[in-house]
């Protein structure tokens, strides 16, 4: 029986829980029996014997979890095999405290929390020392399968570099500017109204979010980058005319994050219109350059409740698959 603790019960946490309920049969067929033994977030917690369905419903109805024990107590004291850590990203040590607690106990961690960029190497070393695994497919590109592609399928390749579109909000804004030739601010308001951009869009449009993800990607391909090492330029100064001028030459503009031994940067770039990276809308995409396999391209939805939850379940499968 796989014992699961869920830390963070917002959109993604609830998405994971809902899939664990609705896909229970299929999941158990592939990984064996499982049970959610504890859930905690900033509003409270629950542990012991409970019905996952009822807790999801209770959290939705009341906006909180029933008990007062906080998340760190749950992380320290409950007995679980894997922690699903889906709290929000904080760029300091507090963002990785729950994960460290779990790994220190020798429990595995599956996370969508980009805070791992704060101390990627330290977390990986801790996991190795404790004979546990830290899985983080959901941190970069949402459900776009890139981490396992790099870590597993391409494990014996030399990765020369990765170049990707890692922020769906920026890609949406740039796509709309490309299509409508409207000013940046107008498209940003549209994106905010549609719920694609946040009320405070700073982290997205200034390239910070893509930069954090790039730190994770760089470390994954063996470049020990920290956030301060990334040269970042956002999309907020792009003009609609820039698209007209670029398109006359056969280019569009996309916010590209790239990591290689000679380059660590997030910046708007001219992308040939016929390149797969000229992808449209909120999609995420990545081009991986390898020594023996040429270029490999992946794309997928970079955000969303069930998309991110799917990436989490994929890590669960990878950890516990029975054959």
């Amino acid at each position: 029986m796989i014992k699961i603790a869920i830390i963070g019960f917002g959109t993604v946490g609830q998405g994971v829980a809902e899939l664990l309920v609705s896909k229970k049969k299929e999941i158990e067929k592939k990984v064996g029996e499982f049970k959610v033994v504890a859930i905690a977030d900033l509003t409270g917690s629950i542990s012991g014997e409970f019905s996952l369905e009822e807790v999801i419903e209770f959290r939705k109805r009341t906006g909180r979890l029933p008990n007062n024990r906080n998340a760190i107590e749950i992380a320290e004291n409950e007995d679980y095999d894997v922690m699903i850590e889906v709290t929000t990203t904080r760029l300091d040590e507090s963002g990785i405290a729950y994960m460290k607690t779990a790994l220190n106990k020798g429990a595995n961690v599956i996370t969508s929390n980009k805070s791992i960029a704060v101390d990627f190497n330290g977390l990986m070393k801790l996991a190795e020392k404790k004979n546990a695994k830290l899985m983080y497919e959901a941190t970069v590109g949402g459900v776009m399968p890139i981490i396992r592609l790099l870590n597993s399928y391409l494990a014996l390749c030399d990765i020369l570099g990765v170049r990707g579109i890692l922020n769906g909000t920026c890609n949406y804004i740039l796509t709309r500017m490309e299509e409508e030739k409207l000013p940046y601010n107008q498209i940003l308001s549209e994106a905010q109204e549609m719920g694609i951009a946040e009320a405070n869009p700073k982290a997205d449009v200034e390239g910070i979010d893509a930069g954090i993800k790039l730190v994770i990607l760089a470390n994954t391909i063996g470049i020990p980058a920290k956030f301060e090492d990334i040269e970042i330029t956002g999309i907020n100064n792009i003009t609609p005319q820039a698209f007209s001028v670029a398109m006359a030459k056969g280019y569009t503009i996309r916010l590209i994050a790239e990591a290689s031994k000679r380059s660590l940067k997030v910046s708007p770039r001219l992308v040939p219109l016929n390149s797969p990276l000229a992808i449209k809308g909120t999609m995420n995409a990545a081009m991986i350059k390898t020594d023996t396999a040429g270029d490999i391209f992946v794309a997928g939805r970079g955000a969303g409740k069930f998309e991110t939850a799917t990436a989490i379940l994929s890590d669960l499968y990878e950890l516990f698959r029975t054959r």
Partner: peptide, 11 residues
């Protein structure tokens, strides 16, 4: 002035 570079073959 902001400079936007193309993506080339080399990374």
């Amino acid at each position: 002035i902001m400079v936007i570079e193309p993506i080339n073959d080399e990374i």
